[in-house]
Structures are given as C-alpha cells and as structure tokens.
Design a protein around this nucleic acid. Structure first.
Lengths: 195, 195
DNA sequence: CGTTTGCTTGAATTCTGTCAAAGCAGGTGG
DNA sequence: CCACCTGCTTTGACAGAATTCAAGCAAACG
C-alpha cells in the first residue's frame, strides 16, 4: 500500500494549514490506493474518470488520439501531481483522453464525492483545492501563451528551463508530442542548439 | 453606473444557489464599477492587476507582446465574462499582459480581498468560484489540446463551432492572433473553406 | 543474442510567415 | 455630398519552417 505521508505533506504545503491527526486518519481510512505497472492505463478513452490519482511514486502521461491515430500528450504526471481528466471527473462524462503509466507508479485515489466531503470537513483540503486551481490556471495561461507566441525552438528552451527534470525522465519523442512537434523536428532543434 | 443584475444572475446560474436580498445589497454596496471606451486599457504590462472585471456590456481582449513587438491574444472577453490577469491578481506580481476594450464596455470591479471576503460570507459566491475554476480548467484543456493536435485550419473550424459569435464580433486579424496564426494564413484558410 | 525502442539524418513535400501591393469598406471633415 | 483617411482583408511571390517518409544506428531488454 502506498505511503500517505507525501499526500499529507502536499496538502499542508499547498494549503498552508496543519493537518490534525484525526483528519489524517480520516483520509488514510477513506482513500484507496492503486499500483500501476509501466504501460498500464489509469484511464482510457470512453471511460468515466471516477478517480483522480495522486502520484506517490512514478510517472504518467495523459494523451489524446486524433483521427489519424496520432497521440498528443497534454500533461505529464510526476511525484506529488494529481492525474486524471478533470472534465470527466467533474461532469461524469466519458473521457476523450488516456492516462498511462510511464514508470511503475503508486497512486492514492479519490472520488469526486470523497473530495467534496473532505473539502467540507477539513479546512486544509479546501484550501489546497483553491491553491491548486489558482496554480493550474496560472500554469495554463503560461503554456497557452507559449503555444501561441513561441516558435518550436523557443518552446523547447522554455520547457528545458521550466521543467528540466522532464528531459531526464521522459523520452524525447514524448517531449516532442508534448510540445506539439514531430520527434524529428525536436531532434534537429537539439542538434542545432549545441553550442 | 453599471447594472448589477447580470452579475447577480450570473452568480446564481453558476453557483446554483439563490442570492438573498441582503447579499445582493452587500455586493451592490461594496463593488465599484468602471466604464471603458473603445481602445482604452483595463490593464497594461507592468501593472499589478488589482481588480478583476465582470463585463456587463462590451468586449475586451487580453494579449501579450513578444520581443519582436508582435501581439498575441490569449483571451477575448464578452458579456458575463471575468477579465484580468489571474496570476497578477492572485500573486500581486506585475502583469505581463494587456487588457484592452474592443468596444465601449461597462465593468464591475472586485479586488482580491473583496472576493475572499464575499466567498467567506456568501455561499453563492463560493460556489460560483468553484464552478468557475472547474469551467476554466476544462476550457483550458480543450484549447491546449486544440493547440497541440490540430492544424491551423482545424483550429479555425473548431473555434467557429465553439464560439461562433467571436467571428461576428471580432475582426479577423484578431481571430488570427488568438489562433496563433498570421492574418494572411487565416484569410487563405477561409477562402479555401468556402464550399 | 536477437528484437524492440528510441534517436538521428537526409530528401522531398507541404504549410506558414513575411513583405509588398492593392482593394474595400466605414467614418470624418470639408 | 463627396473626397479622403484609416483600418481591415485579400492576393501574390518568395523564403523559411515543419512534417512526412525512409533508412540506418545505438542502447536497452527479454
């Protein structure tokens, strides 16, 4: 079973509120955990995303498949990130995305009802949610700006600066997919960038 | 002075909670309003975004300027939308964006402190915020997916389907900027798309 | 080992941006 | 009422950027 301490730390850090022992136990007793093997899917297109997953250990990618069968990575997931399809999770609609483990992973799972209830009963979780939403909106704006206003090369450099660990942890063809360019183009950009 | 009823309706609709008379008065008495003339700026690069603005009437655009001096539109604003730079608003950092009126506009203004306090005192506002955040995250995911996985032509068609009123209300060169393509390319896409 | 997976490289093709010019409104002032 | 701006759109020619297809290579894995 997954270790809950990273989640407790995360909640306290994001919410800036201390988690009392009883609330920790509440969380510990309510939430399920799940282990994923590399290449195992956490979510597949057409499924309803019943759980959001908190990554205790491991890495994931969330991607969409277009009509031509090409995959496009929207998000990576690493330790201390939540993964899943928010749209499907909140609206209970079938997801258009896949979430797949890129490394063996330990997740802590939460349903929408559990999340709502925890947000009502524990201050720290409510504050964490607000903080998460703020952070997500800000990050989304930045990424959108990068997508519209930067060239492929600039987007790569931006990524290398903002998330340097991505480059060590994920294969290059997936970085390319995340940037919205072909793996060949990324290879050429890297070659040209060597000073 | 701006009419507050659109804001009240909006809060009730988003929150699915009725706004009692006393809470309406609280809002009415606390919040300032502002009129913008066409081309007037609501926010300029370097300013801290002290207020978020609720558009009662009119239209705006939020854009960034790159090193070459080119403008890139990140969001449009229309009636019943909130405008401003969330990052600057929440973190009190200087904004990297401009918000400009594209038509004469009536806005209702709210500061971060007012928003936090209203969220504490009135259920409807708190619920509205949650709903807004959910909607924003979902919309951001969709737009990001479009940006990575669609061609310029497909992005235009997607926009025409999702926000048809944009095409009537905003000039084509701004639509192009929003899509991240040049006005010439958009013109050619439109010409080719006529069946 | 042999297979798979990911990375690189080349050549041809398609797409998009840039620059320049011209057309086409709507709005204004004379 | 007309002439003239001014802002927006269209078009053409060209250069540059990115994708596609194909092949080869190296490291990782079972």
């Amino acid at each position: 079973m997954a270790d809950f301490n990273p989640l407790f730390d995360y909640i306290e850090r994001k919410s800036k509120v201390t988690l009392p022992e009883d609330e920790r136990n509440l969380i510990l007793n309510k939430l399920k955990t799940k282990k994923l093997r590399k290449r195992q899917f956490f979510l597949q297109e057409g499924d309803v995303c019943k759980y959001m997953g908190f990554i205790v250990k491991g890495a994931t990618r969330m991607f969409a498949v277009d009509e031509k069968g090409h995959e496009h990575i929207l998000h990576f997931g690493l330790e201390e990130w939540w993964v899943g399809d928010y749209e499907s999770f909140y609206l209970l609609t079938p997801s258009k995305y896949y979430v797949e483990a890129l490394e063996d992973a330990d997740l802590i799972l939460i349903t929408n009802e559990q999340l709502q209830e925890l947000a009502r009963t524990t201050k720290a979780v409510a504050a964490m949610l607000d903080s998460l939403n703020q952070g997500a909106t800000i990050a989304n704006n930045k990424r959108m700006r990068a997508a519209i206003s930067l060239t492929a090369e600039e987007r790569y450099e931006d990524l290398a600066k903002t998330y340097p660990h991505f480059l060590q942890r994920f294969p290059q063809n997936m970085i390319a997919s995340y940037l919205g360019i072909s793996p060949e183009t990324l290879s050429r950009i890297r070659k040209a960038a060597v000073k």
